[in-house]
Amino acid sequence: MTKPQALIMTGYGINCEEETAFGFEKAGAESKIVHINDLIEKNDQLKNYQILAFPGGFAYGDDTGAGKAFANRVRHHLMEKMLDFVKKDKLVIGICNGFQIISNLGLVPAFESHYDSQKVALTRNVDGRYLSRWVDLKVQNKTPWLKGIKSLSLPIGHGEGNFYADPKTLKKLQQKNLIALRYVRGEICEYQNMTENPNGAIENIAGITDETGHVLGLMPHPDRALFFTQRPDWPLQKEKLKRKGKKLPCEGPGMRIFKNAITYFS
């Protein structure tokens, strides 16, 4: 079996391309980090990939609103190929800044397959400040990306992750079952006694999909939870396991998402 090919977009301040690429590689894909300008130059190469990832970062320094400037660049130079890609049986993920980019583009929620109209926003965190911590998530809908996962904990790191949609859109998101992830109070919030919603997101929404479930946008970072030793509570878990004579697991919770993408193509 040939390995699924993953294209990891980078450039202009995207900064999570290496860990995202590693996540896919470790899960069994072949990753290639491609600068957006190289993709614009040879936009035909997109068709050689099964997975497209918009990683986290600070494209254009979040100036004029996170993801906006990068989305403009994609829209003006790559939109046609992008639409070809999402309309095929392929997978797209936008993580953090990537989620901001794909929601600006309209790749999510893309009601009635309109992949080019912006319906939701990720605005400034409610306390106006960047936040780096872990959150707990509950899976809400069906998407290949989250298959078999009921809940998981991942880190976030963003200044503009406050999900917003107007009441009409919100209702539609619910009706069409496009809300993929919600912030909940789970094991990490319990562990460090933190509120479940880190940024003021409406209805605790942390991630959404398109109607096919192939395109997932989420604020939390599976790429920052590749190893068990990245969990905030791993030193405690280690002591507990050691005293039971058990070994420390290797993988972090984020790996499940990368593995799901590979499973989808096998």
């Binding site: 900064n15 960047y130 936040l131 780096s132 880190p155 790191g157 970072h221 920052r224 990245q230 509570d233």
Partner: peptide
């Protein structure tokens, strides 16, 4: 500590804020 991203690059093991 919270407003300084310490998880980017996916390398953080013992974090700036520790324990419960």
């Amino acid at each position: 500590s919270r407003q300084y991203d310490h998880e980017v690059q996916s390398t953080d093991i013992l974090k700036p804020l520790q324990g419960r």
